[in-house]
Design a protein around this nucleic acid. Structure first.
Length: 423
RNA sequence: GGAGAGAUGGCAGAGUGGUCGAAUGCGGUGGUCUUGAAAACCAUUGUACGGCAACGUACCGGGGGUUCGAAUCCCUCUCUCUCCGCCA
């Protein structure tokens, strides 16, 4: 969520920049400023009242001690009276504070200047592309055919055990998963990321910290009995490691990576684009996360994109990098780069990574701060990216590398798979 | 699942109704001393909100209550630990 004091000081600019999201926030922002005004006025009144009764209480105590019962009792009556009004002010303050916070939840992050204007994914800006699109034989197959032909993934079996979107990886298909995970983790480690294996379920506070709650609870599987949520991405548990913390400036950059399965309900997305590996309820992903000094987050973002590009390069997949337009930008992100690979049999681009800088939007909720040179505390910047999400990588690998007799495995994976072909 | 204990500042750990934002120790920071370091000594050291500032207010796991006054008493929730049972 946005910082109230930043919004207070820069309202017109913020409203202007938010227009990139194709919505006018003037009214909402004005309502917030109004609430903020009221809240501050109320706090002053409340603090005043509390201060007075604190003084009074102290005096009463002194009077009792020096044996002046009568006077003390008289003041006590006065104090009771005051209590009523301070109680009212307290309630009022809390109500205003609550309203203000809730109103702030509804304002998305402010897009950076580089974010192009636009309404939908068709307006995203392609800023880089690499790799050549393979020419497949006429009788080429989509990955869901290949996985069946070579016994790599059993979608029907997953449906039987759990439901649609929960595939069973078998034989070389399972081994390929493991290989990719290890490859991605090793690459991340080589780039200085510390590996963590976080919990796959998180509590409400964590889901709130990274912004899944209060709005997007429909996306997560919810174990109501224990009020825990299955993670939709490792971003949630990993970023929450630093919730409620004050870091030292020397701690930056904090670089962490982790492999986890991810669980997404994907409610309402049935029908289109869900065939095979394109959209699953459970999938594997290696995530990279960084906490960074605000002055350095921009270059950090670039290095993270570079890291992902490198992975795709090594895998030999044709890919492109998109800078998301304002209309496609996630609620919490200030800027996002999507990386897409070309899946040659399906003849379409598949999103395999999303690298974002959230500036202070997440850390404000997380209360992740650092003590600066000036001795004051400031909110850290958070960044994260997929490096990488497996299913669509597998889809593209299978489709792009197929030939008459099987599927070629990219060289960087050989030491992990132990085989160089699937046939 | 049953029985019990507990939750206090970065950590350890006092504090059972006013003198407590909170003793003490450790740690951190600054300084003295030293060729340098260590040791010793001195000082300083929580967060948030409001205020130009002085300063005020709130916070001792969360929420509620009693009281003129709560870290301290009551209720409730959450979490942690120990023992028993079950179990990978």
């Amino acid at each position: 969520m946005l910082e109230i004091n930043v919004l207070r000081d820069n309202a017109p600019q913020i409203i202007e920049r938010l227009k990139k999201r194709n919505k006018d926030f003037t009214q909402q922002v004005n309502a917030i400023l109004e609430l903020d005004e009221q809240r501050r006025a109320c706090q002053q009144e409340m603090d005043q009242a509390l201060s007075e009764s604190n003084v009074l209480s102290k005096q009463i105590g002194d009077l009792f001690k020096s044996g002046k019962q009568a006077e003390a009792n008289e003041m006590r009556a006065k104090s009771v009276e005051m209590k009523e009004s301070s109680h009212k002010l307290k309630d009022q303050f809390h109500e205003l504070d609550q309203k203000l916070t809730e109103a702030l939840y509804d304002i998305p992050n402010v897009p950076q200047d580089s974010v192009p204007a636009g309404k939908a994914d068709t307006d995203n800006e392609e800023i880089f592309a690499e790799g050549s699109i393979p020419e497949l034989a006429d009788n080429n197959k989509a990955h869901w055919e290949l996985t069946e032909q070579y016994g790599l993934i059993d979608f029907d079996l997953g449906s039987k055990i759990t439901g649609a979107g929960f595939p069973v990886y078998t034989g070389k298909g399972a081994k390929l998963q493991r290989a990719l995970i290890n490859f991605f983790l090793d690459e991340a480690e080589n780039a200085g990321y510390k590996e963590v294996i976080p919990p796959l379920m998180v509590n409400e506070d964590s889901a709130f910290g990274t912004g899944q709650l209060p709005d997007k609870e429909g996306q997560m599987y919810h174990a109501t009995e224990d009020n825990l949520f299955l993670i939709p991405t490792a971003e949630v548990p990993i970023t929450n490691i630093y919730r409620d913390m004050i870091l030292k400036e020397a701690d930056f950059p904090i670089k962490m990576c982790g492999y986890t399965p991810c669980f997404r309900r994907e409610a309402g997305s049935y029908g289109k684009d869900v065939r095979g590996l394109n959209r699953l309820h459970q999938f594997d992903k290696v995530e990279i996360v960084q906490f960074q000094h605000p002055d350095k987050s921009q270059e950090t973002l670039d290095t993270m994109v570079e890291h992902v590009k490198n992975l795709l390069r090594k895998l030999g997949l044709p890919y492109r990098v998109l800078r998301l337009c304002g209309g496609d930008l996630g609620f919490a992100a200030a800027v996002t780069y999507d990386l897409e690979v070309y899946s040659a049999a399906q003849e379409k681009w598949l999103e395999v990574s999303s690298v974002s800088c959230f500036e202070t939007f997440q850390s404000n909720r997380l209360k992740c701060r650092f003590k600066g040179e000036d001795g004051k505390t400031h909110l850290a910047h958070t960044l994260n990216g997929s490096a990488l999400a497996l299913p669509r990588i597998v889809a593209a690998l299978l489709e792009n590398n197929q030939d008459e007799n099987g599927i070629r495995i990219p060289e960087c994976l050989h030491r992990y798979t132990g085989f160089d072909r699937i046939d």
